[in-house]
Amino acid sequence: MTLLLFDLVLIATLLTLAVAALTSVEPRRAVMLFIAFGLWLALVWARLGAPDVALAEAAIGAGLGGALMLAAARRAARRRQRTGGEG
């Protein structure tokens, strides 16, 4: 019962982070939420008995992917400020 509750909290947070990352308009905010989503996903995979994959997701998916996207988000944010619209 406690384990089920634990699972539900893990999954609810995961889905909330995904929705937040997908719906935020500001690029840097979206990327930050995507990084948080990736790290939380690594936590969920550790719960599912996949520590190898959790390590890889935390380091590659969230870490390097996030670093790559942050550099792009910085440019996108600057462009948004310049044009004042979507970009």
């Binding site: 990352a21 690029p27 979206a30 990327v31 995507f34 996903l41 996207m69 996108a76």
Partner: peptide, 23 residues
């Protein structure tokens, strides 16, 4: 969503969903 970065985040989350299903 139109902006490239948002599309990329979306496709990455889509991929994560497939990975999550496999795990």
């Amino acid at each position: 969503h139109r902006p490239l970065l948002r599309k990329l985040i979306a496709i990455n989350i889509m991929g994560s969903g497939v990975f999550h299903l496999l795990i």
